[in-house]
Write a protein that binds this DNA or RNA. Structure first.
Lengths: 255, 255
DNA sequence: GGCATGGTGTCATCGAACTGTCATCCAACT
DNA sequence: AGTTGGATGACAGTTCGATGACACCATGCC
């Protein structure tokens, strides 16, 4: 028992890093309400909390950006008209930063404001709803957006200093961008789904190429080599472990 | 061809040995088909049963979750478009529960639905196949996934301060990593399956080398020696017991 | 169309790791 | 002491993964 625990403990070090997005997922989704009218804000908070969301508030555009940056909510409910910084401007700034590019935003607009101009103008919002609105309508939009956004969150995979962004199809190692061909990308993607685990060439062919495609087993070697070449900068440890007669694994310890 | 067959043969040996201890494993693998189109469902059932699987069915997402929870199938064939709860959503819910996190899932999608978005977007499925598909393609995927899922059960083995991790293909003694050649690895793996039990050289040849391979019996001595050398650091007790005229065993007591 | 480019699968070759065998030595039993 | 069976070191042959080269295809660009 003690031994097993020891092994687990030593090997779970990196896992805690890669588990971060999952930990947040467990909690209720957090909605940031940006609304300068206090009575409306209170109403929104009340209803959203009843629906099971955590609610944070911001009264103007400046505060909104601040809160988005530091508490990374899962969804933004954004009033169109705001003091200090208009809703459109907030939207634009949020879209500009890579960390918040995919944050779902719902705009709250007054009926008088022309909907066409909102729709036509590229605000960057994902959805909008005109005031006054019913709570069911809002709830439906919130649910839909959160559901859509969810996979994006888990599209991010991390192992050691390697980050694979599934939605952007992008790979980094130690912050530096890494260019991979399509096959190498899928290969890495698959290996990152089961870090440390050893896969035979046949496993990899099935998973990366497809079960019904016939390709020489040795071809895997070549792609592993290309993956290594792209991933390992001079001086860095090789992240691909070769296990003789067994296959390959994504791993730090070469032995 | 020859290559693949060789791989099959050698790797299936380990699998039969590392069969899960549970009683229900003797049965054929059970596949749950989640498909709302009755004619397709019938076709799938017919073909899968012909391939030797047990087939269960569910017509929508709700029923799918229910059946997964109560009958714990070995593999899920999941239609992308479903009434009441989409395939993606089913997938996500299954992945959320620890008991079903490793359940292999194959998605069935229509050709029009973008394949990239399925593969790229992290749906949580292990594989997918576009609709219309040939039965061989499906069979290949099912086989591949079931094979991959199986060895997970027999991951970690331990004897005294020795830990052998089957999925990672790693060996440790007293926390220190131990490097073994393929033969020594299989030898240790076999010995660890029956600690303390004494095996004759012939037993070991059959189990580790294979019944049909002809190798000099004395060769076992050499590999036992290599295993000892790798396993026993200076000052540690020898974990391999020699029983004169009988064979070897994994044991702590020297006598 | 023709050309460049980047990606892919296959092959021949190289070198390191592994393997099986033997001769020799040593310890245990008779 | 003599015999038997295991341990050990050496070694030659083999296997297996790494590597570089190359021909083939797409795709995009002039």
């Amino acid at each position: 028992m003690t031994q097993l625990d020891a092994v687990h403990a030593s090997s779970s070090r990196e896992q805690t890093m890669s588990r971060r997005p999952a930990a947040r997922e467990e909690a209720r989704p957090r909605v940031l309400v940006v609304e300068d009218d206090p009575s409306l804000a209170v109403m929104l908070r009340y209803n959203l909390e009843k629906l099971g969301y955590q609610v944070e508030e911001a009264a103007d555009g400046q505060e909104a950006l601040l809160r988005v940056a530091e508490s990374a909510p899962d969804l933004l409910l954004l009033d169109w008209m705001l003091p200090s910084l208009s809703g459109i401007e907030v939207c634009r700034q949020i879209r500009r930063r890579p960390q918040t590019r995919d944050l779902p935003i719902i705009m709250l607009t007054a009926r008088t404001e022309e909907q066409d101009s909102i729709r036509g103008l590229n605000t960057g919002a994902d959805d909008y709803i005109t005031k006054p609105f019913g709570m069911e309508a809002l709830a439906a939009r919130v649910r839909a957006l959160l559901r859509r956004a969810q996979p994006q969150a888990s599209g991010l995979r991390q192992f050691a200093d390697i980050v694979l962004d599934g939605t952007e199809h992008r790979v980094q190692r130690a912050g530096r961008p890494v260019h991979l061909g399509p096959t190498e990308y899928r290969l890495l993607e698959f290996l990152m789904q089961h870090p440390r685990r050893v896969f035979s060439r046949e496993d990899l062919l099935n998973a990366v190429w497809g079960a019904d495609i016939h390709v020489e087993a040795r071809t895997v070697d070549v792609h592993i080599r290309r993956l290594r070449k792209a991933l390992n900068a001079p001086g860095e440890v090789d992240v691909v472990r070769t296990v003789r007669t067994a296959g390959y694994a994504l791993d730090l310890e070469p032995v």
